[in-house]
């Protein structure tokens, strides 16, 4: 018998393991990152480079691209652990499944959402965004991408082990992403029209809080159904 680990250290181990595994397959993580940069850079090529137009489009373009980037990696969130039985082992351990799920979500966010928070302002510069707009863009993405990972986890667990998962996850998850998109892009838009972004940001925070409570629960229920 090995020594009994505290809940905290077990959860930390799960998080550490997920990040290590992802690090071994860096190309997957980098792909999401590059997808965001390339896809966002395509829009000016389609619309023309009028700085005013680009500035008006930027919140929507950057937010929708971020949303799609986060979605791309959802199908991998649980898939490999599900395929090799690790997930079942984790759930059989005496740690609450909700917390395990929360750690998986956190790992996903750190690998696919968080990098976007840092690169988005750079892309924002290409779209002629002002300093104030860039700040709010980064802040809204910081809160919003975590909500995206949380909500996305529901789609990932519901479709676990089904063939042709990618498109199905998109259909399930995109409608649920709408409030995050509206309030996230809305905060940046508020700055553009000279209104305080605080209202939009608090609403985004409320959505994040709701997702923090409900998404792990729903994901846990979906995991149990998938593993039955």
């Amino acid at each position: 018998m090995h020594k009994k680990l505290s809940t905290f250290s077990v959860l930390y181990k799960i998080l550490e393991r997920d990040i290590k595994v992802a690090w071994r397959r860096q190309s997957d993580v980098m792909a999401v990152f590059f997808f965001f940069i390339i896809a966002a850079s395509l829009f000016p090529l389609g619309s023309g480079a009028d700085p005013k137009l680009l500035n008006a489009m930027a919140p929507s373009v950057l937010w929708v691209t971020a949303l799609l980037s986060c979605m791309l990696s959802l199908s991998r969130m649980y898939a490999s652990d599900y395929a090799d039985g690790t997930l079942e082992q984790m759930m059989l351990s005496n740690q609450p499944t909700v917390l395990i799920v929360l750690m998986k979500i956190l790992a996903h966010w750190m690998l696919s959402g968080l990098p976007l928070v840092f690169v988005a302002p750079l892309i924002g510069l290409q779209f002629n965004l002002s300093g104030a707009q860039l700040q709010i863009l980064a802040l809204s993405l910081l809160m919003g991408t975590l909500a995206l990972s949380l909500i996305g986890s529901i789609g990932a667990t519901l479709t676990l082990g089904i063939r042709g998962t990618g498109v199905l996850i998109a259909i399930l998850v995109l409608p649920l992403y709408i409030p995050v998109l509206v309030f996230g892009a809305g905060a940046v838009n508020a700055v553009s029209i000279g209104v305080s972004p605080n209202g939009a940001l608090s609403l985004l925070g409320a959505v994040l809080a709701m997702a923090l409570v409900f998404a792990p629960l729903a994901s846990t229920a979906a995991l149990k159904i998938a593993l039955e």
Partner: peptide, 19 residues
């Protein structure tokens, strides 16, 4: 599970669209 998640989301989505 998806239907329930959707039902919780419906008021939030409608509110966000109105906003």
């Amino acid at each position: 599970v998806l239907a329930l998640v959707g039902a919780i989301n419906v008021p939030i989505i409608f509110f966000s669209v109105k906003w």
